[in-house]
Amino acid sequence: MKYSVTLRVNGKEQKLNLDARATLLNALREILHLTGTKKGCDQGQCGSCTVLLNGKRVNSCLVLAVMADGKTVTTIEGVSSNGELHPLQQSFLSHDGLQCGYCTPGQIVSALGFLNEPWDKTPEAVQIGMSGNLCRCGAYPNIASAIEEIRSSIQEAASS
């Protein structure tokens, strides 16, 4: 059975006619061809498919697209603007917070979500708050420093 679903993806309204079974992840990848969001496990166990749904990070593999009707979705494609890298993307690049790059979009979008959550203002919170994103290449220490650089700069800006 098909359902009409309206998503606001990266600022753009998308009207789709979907199988109720289509996950948000499959809708993004196979129908909207926004393939930056990756399928790593399709079971909510790796974080590669992380997107922001109404501003909160979620595993898009476990969200049915119909459930997201009327909601805003931010994928990795919506993180940079006008060809300019987001500071978080730049930080991943300079800290080499990636190797094969497959988990990277999920890591970056997850980090965006993390920075908006009420975690303790500590580097340890990055380690804990980012443990929903697996990386098999083992880029963790570099990912952690990439995010910590942004987290601490936000904290400094807020306290000055």
Binding site: G44, G47, T50, L53, K56, R57, V58, N59, L62, V63, S110, G113, F114, E117, G129, S131, G132, N133
Partner: peptide
């Protein structure tokens, strides 16, 4: 429990 992404849903 779980991960931040799962807990958000």
């Amino acid at each position: 429990g779980a991960s931040p992404q799962l807990r958000n849903m």
